[in-house]
């Protein structure tokens, strides 16, 4: 099961722009592993910005999907997998 959220989150990145940790529900979650990442351009004809998605596993074992609006835009928590 997974839940779709689309909620803004604060993300700390490394020098390549890859996520290292993010804050969700007032606690910081360290990213253990980037399981997958992909890029979606979206509805370009409507001016939608492209998004970089990261499916990550945190130290506590949770599986989350984050995305960042490009270039260098806001981060969002997209999905939590139970």
């Amino acid at each position: 099961m997974s839940r779709l959220l689309h909620q803004p989150v604060a993300v700390r990145c490394d020098r390549h722009g890859l996520p290292l940790s993010f804050r969700w529900r007032r606690s910081s979650r360290e990213i253990q592993e980037i399981l997958d990442s992909w890029l979606e351009v979206g509805s370009w004809w409507q001016g939608e910005k492209p998004k970089a998605f990261f499916q990550v596993r945190t130290g506590a074992g949770g599986c989350y999907t984050l995305y960042q609006e490009l270039p260098n835009g806001e981060w969002y928590l997209y999905r939590i997998e139970d």
């Binding site: 980037i34 399981l35 997958d36 990442s37 992909w38 890029l39 970089a52 998605f53």
Partner: peptide, 8 residues
Amino acid sequence: RRLPRSIT
């Protein structure tokens, strides 16, 4: 090409 599951 930065598509889902390319890494795997």
